[in-house]
């Protein structure tokens, strides 16, 4: 009997300890490549933790964006850093007693405070569930992201765009990746890319009623984009200018337009009548999926498509 309650606790303890251990190893490892790989492993373990905590939507986002895409960005940057810099920087094994003494009370205080918080309070779950029928979706997380607190999601799409603008403004040249193309990779891509696009479409569609949604679908699309880029695929210059920019902003634009459509009939910004809500949310999520995917792939590219290296 005791073993039944003990087993999950044992699992959770192991998971928790592994998280801390992986994070510590990732931060203190002297080799940066090893550090990044450990960080990716940490991200995947976090995804597992989210599943354990009944947060499958978060798990998907973490695995694809937090571990996958961030890891890819880190590795790509490391490769470029190493290519540009022949000399090695001094290894950093640092242990500062002063810093530890300052941080120790911080962590104890934080732990103490966290333990005083009530557990098992439903928070806003009740309100969310009560109004779910009028939101047009049945997945509560999607309802929060696209309806109740859609304004946050709108701003967050703007944040993605700003990051891309910033990266482009630095003027870096897109990374060349010709080294990787070959017959096996090309054939694999011909199978994988359509599959990934289908998975993205599925996640988008199913997100209304089950774990999934625009961010998860968008990140799968982004992964497909990264694969294409790694294989040396380049965007034809015809599309690299205005059409690309239009796709990039389509998420924000669709969201804003959907938000103001009903203002003339007396509703608030981002308020949808219940009969239209489901369709609107799907429309917004479709546009958002596209722009999120392209933005993530563009962030990986690191430079504005169409730019050429000046010799």
């Amino acid at each position: 009997m005791a073993a039944m309650t003990l087993l999950p606790l044992l699992f959770d303890t192991l998971l928790g300890l592994s998280l801390i251990w992986l994070a510590w190893r990732a931060l203190t490892s002297t080799d940066l490549f090893q550090a990044i790989v450990l960080f990716i492993a940490f991200g995947l373990l976090m995804a597992l933790t989210w599943v354990r905590l009944d947060a499958p939507d978060v798990a998907m986002a973490e695995a694809a964006i937090g571990a996958g895409l961030t890891g890819a960005l880190l590795l790509a940057t490391l490769a470029r850093l190493k290519a540009n810099n022949k000399t090695k920087s001094a290894p950093e094994k640092k242990f500062s007693l002063l810093l530890t003494l300052i941080i120790l009370p911080v962590v104890t205080g934080l732990v103490y405070v966290v333990l005083t918080l009530p557990q098992n309070t439903p928070g806003l779950a009740i309100l969310v569930a009560e109004n779910l029928k009028t939101t047009g979706v049945t997945n509560p997380v999607t309802a929060v992201l696209l309806n109740y607190r859609g304004y946050d999601t709108l701003l967050e799409l703007a944040v993605l765009l700003v990051a891309l603008l910033g990266v482009w403004s630095f003027g870096g040249v897109p990374k060349p990746h010709e080294a990787y193309s070959g017959p096996v990779l090309n054939m694999l891509l011909r199978l994988l890319i359509p599959l990934l696009i289908m998975v993205a479409g599925y996640l988008l569609w199913v997100g209304a009623n089950a774990p999934g949604g625009a961010f998860q679908a968008g990140s799968v699309l982004g992964a497909a984009g990264v694969l294409l880029l790694l294989a040396g695929w380049q965007l034809s210059t015809r599309f690299a200018e205005l059409p690309l920019r239009i796709i990039l902003v389509s998420g924000v634009v669709m969201f804003t337009m959907a938000g103001i459509v009903f203002i003339v009939s007396g509703r608030q910004f981002l308020e949808y009548p219940p009969s239209f809500a489901g369709a609107f949310i799907l429309l917004i999520e479709a546009a958002a999926t596209l722009s999120i995917g392209i933005t993530l792939a563009a962030l990986f590219l690191g430079g504005r498509p169409g730019l050429r290296r000046h010799k």
Partner: peptide, 14 residues
Amino acid sequence: PDPVPHAMVITGIV
């Protein structure tokens, strides 16, 4: 499970 923190974390990850 409260879905608002889940949405907050997805936003945070992005």
